[in-house]
Design a protein around this nucleic acid. Sequence first.
DNA 1: CTGAAAGCGCTAACAT
DNA 2: ATGTTAGCGCTTTCAG
Lengths: 345, 345
Amino acid sequence: MGVSLKDVAQRAGVSIKTVSNVVNNYQHVTPAMRTKVQQAIDELGYRPNLTARHLRKGRTGIIALAVPEFGNPYFAELAGAVIDAAARHDYTVLVDHTAGLREKELLVSQGFRSHVIDGLILSPIHLETEDLMARTETAPLVLLGEREYEAPYDHIAIDNVAAARAAVCHLVGQGNRRIAFLGSRTGRERQPAHLRLRGWREELAAAGITPDESLVVVTDGYGREDGAAGMAQLLDRADRPDAVFAYNDLIAIGAMRTITERGLRIPDDIAVVGFDDIEESRYTTTTLTTIAPDKEAIARLAVDSLVEQLAGTPVAEPRRPRPGYRLVVRESTTPGPDSGHTEDL
Amino acid sequence: MGVSLKDVAQRAGVSIKTVSNVVNNYQHVTPAMRTKVQQAIDELGYRPNLTARHLRKGRTGIIALAVPEFGNPYFAELAGAVIDAAARHDYTVLVDHTAGLREKELLVSQGFRSHVIDGLILSPIHLETEDLMARTETAPLVLLGEREYEAPYDHIAIDNVAAARAAVCHLVGQGNRRIAFLGSRTGRERQPAHLRLRGWREELAAAGITPDESLVVVTDGYGREDGAAGMAQLLDRADRPDAVFAYNDLIAIGAMRTITERGLRIPDDIAVVGFDDIEESRYTTTTLTTIAPDKEAIARLAVDSLVEQLAGTPVAEPRRPRPGYRLVVRESTTPGPDSGHTEDL
DNA sequence: CTGAAAGCGCTAACAT
DNA sequence: ATGTTAGCGCTTTCAG
């Protein structure tokens, strides 16, 4: 095995405690002692064994992040932000992906690496409130994403209804009337996409347009291919929409591909709005208008929540902070040169 | 603190060892004893403390993955593959990003969470052989990526020279002659992009074309914006190229954007080939021809290398396995309908 | 300001 | 087949 405190102590001719003091930068150590010990440390190439420290302290300095998949740039970009936010609190990040499988989400929420992670940030898709209520694992948990839960956990998410309304409002403002919603899930309340769908309904109604439920398209998943397939479905029908509000950017990008392949123009024939503002949406041939959630804020709030809970701050009520978002207007909704216009919301 | 083995033992009226046996599924335990202990475990809600186990065993079951940034889908997709490969060996993955900063790469290679990770998979950009030789950390390290090192560590990378040649060969086969290389770094040998650039030179020479070094464009980084800027530089000059081989897909995508903005057509005016086969390249308006490294193989080989080293398999020589890659031909190099053609290489 | 000893929760010898 | 005991390397009282 490696070099331990004991070895260093022996070498320096002092006690273990003294070495520990030096390693941990404790106050009351004479400079002479410090240099002596430091020398022994250097000579032996001592590295503190964090595992031992963790066992002793009951803390590891590791938090876990579990998202559906890193293939979705939104989650990849978010992961980067979480790593940075965690680093500012001297935390390291363990990652896992759930593939959006309830089983995997359950597993992760129940006890991912029991006792090795201090807390968990989870972005669930199929987990239910009951699952969360049945949770026995005691490590703090913070939820991310669009799903709503009646469970006693902090939940970080932008105001999805309002954001969706802003997107639809923009579309209506551009003169569109038949606005499809692409990327819904099946009928149950509380399903993913529920809030964005609600925003779609509310804003249409507010604009005096009766929401046409036949324009709500269910997709199998949340990827580009799902958006492409969903769009094809829409275009195969008689009365095509003049705009599409997609659940996320990947679906929007898939939809744009289908639209283009069919020889239709964006936004002239069909306008498109996405959700996430992944970097890719700034480089599609027709750049994509989208809702841009403040990923840094989301990451920061999530990590802060964990850090507070770990500091033992008693959390009376689960908190639901609302990070900001912007509507970023690009070519996919504005004929002519890109306005590059952004609305803070 | 939580429930420990001792608590369970007490509750079940047996010794600690017996509980440990049950928890670890040891052979010789009577069924009666097993159920009795299991009941106590359930009643108390016991979860083994992995930290303690790790301390005892000197292993944590955690490996680290450090890449430049997760904003590049190639690394995000690779991370997903690494997580899966690691899971098959019951390993969990700790992640960090280096932002391509030598300082950060150095820090990570030196001792990322000393003793809490069993091994490290690192994809360096600016690290030098000397840095690696000076490494004191004893945890196994596996290198990823295009850089070459004369250091005693396993290195997993496709044959970048051959892959680049395949890309350029394809371009030449399509009738292109003035083929630019987009995404080089400054002159030093061994710099990133060195191998792909060499492939470009070799293949051109083999095709009887004298490599025009003025067509080698240095970019600031590896993102879409760098590709866009580099392409603009190329097009601002008198004699424009008829094709571009980009260091990676992001640069290629940025280049395509500039080409389109200038009113030029792809591939008729300028053909484009990328490198990485990120999913996005299948959905750009003009889909992107690219080199597709076998990410699953890369991830698997990297994790396998670590696992072997951890199993104590004496590694005489550093190994350089060569995972496969394919040339995926798409619209950006083939006029008319997409051939969808793929060449395994 | 420094030393001695206890113990975090677990596993691995060794006993029985 | 089950029990006892000794650490893994560290931090933390408690003395000195």
